[in-house]
């Protein structure tokens, strides 16, 4: 059929509103899970950097558990299994945001941990020797230096997160992929619509990855 297929991209244009709406939900999912992932990831990363096993071990278990199970299973579990166990049902958008947030937190935790571990021991010594407490030392000396080195892997993780939001379609969240599938059911134009979808994601995500690579090279050159 390849050579005989006639593309009809005007269908996509006609239904552009649907794409815009889907992109809005995708952005919302990304922002929500990013917020959860950053906050929880920082906490877990600090716990994993701690000297006390009572802090380190639970954080390590969390990180390994979330890295060793598929995201899709985590989302489905949160949406279908959790309500049965607890009687607490979140809406689909909240479920996906929380699920992806919990998932990405495991990866942010690793970025924070590695960033903190990359700071020279002398910096900790100097901060302690002028009498800084743990919080002051982290906020004013360690994290400001660590965060600079974490920016490139950070941006990569955001790009990954954005791609993972398409899993929301499984829970009937009207993000981009789900909107596209609905549209196909109405228009019977899967090629145009899936192609547009792929291009749309590329156009959003590639600049992010490009930026992270540029930054990485820039930061390397400076240090």
């Amino acid at each position: 059929m390849g050579q005989s297929y006639v593309w009809h991209f005007n269908v996509v244009w006609e239904y552009r509103q649907v794409f815009v709406r889907g992109a809005g939900i995708t952005a919302q999912l990304t922002a929500g899970s990013l917020l959860i992932g950053l906050v929880l990831g920082l906490l877990l990363g600090l716990m994993r950097s701690s000297r006390s096993g009572a802090m380190r071990v639970p954080a390590a278990v969390y990180v390994e558990a979330f890295r060793a199970t598929p995201v899709l299973v985590q989302l489905v579990w949160l949406y279908y299994a959790l309500p049965i166990l607890t009687g607490f049902q979140m809406g689909p958008i909240l479920s996906v945001s929380v699920g992806l947030g919990l998932h990405t937190a495991a990866y942010f935790a690793e970025i924070f941990r590695a960033g903190i571990a990359s700071i020279d021991r002398g910096q900790w010594d100097a901060a302690k020797s002028i009498g800084m407490g743990y919080g002051q030392m982290m906020r004013r000396i360690i994290l400001p230096q660590a965060v600079r080195r974490m920016i490139p892997p950070f941006i990569n993780e955001i790009a990954t997160l954005m791609k993972l939001t398409t899993l929301g379609s499984v829970l009937a969240v009207y993000e981009l992929l789900h909107e596209a599938q609905n549209l196909i059911n109405n228009t019977y134009r899967p090629l145009e619509i899936y192609t547009t979808l792929a291009v749309a994601f590329f156009v959003i995500i590639y600049p992010i990855i490009w930026l992270s690579q540029r930054l990485e090279r820039y930061l390397k050159a400076r240090s």
Partner: peptide, 20 residues
């Protein structure tokens, strides 16, 4: 511990200034 440390300062072989 922090209060006592702040009363005894330290100068290191590798300086350990805060680079930022």
């Amino acid at each position: 511990v922090s209060r006592l440390r702040s009363q005894v300062a330290m100068v290191f072989q590798q300086f350990n200034l805060f680079p930022h």
